[in-house]
Amino acid sequence: MNTPVPADWYLLLSAALFTMGVIGFLSKRSLITVFMSIELMLNAVNLSFVTFAHEWHAVKGQIFVFFVMMVAAAEAAVGLAIIIAIFRVRGTLTVDQIDRMKL
């Protein structure tokens, strides 16, 4: 009943999620979904952190994840604010059309 799962399965899942995040970054056209892909990658990395923390019985691995969450929260706040600002200036969120530094 209590069948154990090999730790590397978690890592593989993490790798798969990370790769899908990268794919999203490369293929999605909307700035918001690109940002979501970044969050996906962060979560994938968090998963491997937790897995390793479990593997080596290290509490600090989990605390690292905690800090990542904090930073992600801050980043989301600032990033989304930037997105709003960009939208206000450009009128679009299609990344292929936002390729100029000057206004």
Binding site: L26, V95, D96, D99, R100
Partner: peptide
């Protein structure tokens, strides 16, 4: 340096 975000990401 196209300015295109996706190219940079690539």
């Amino acid at each position: 340096q196209s300015g295109n975000l996706r190219s940079y990401a690539a």
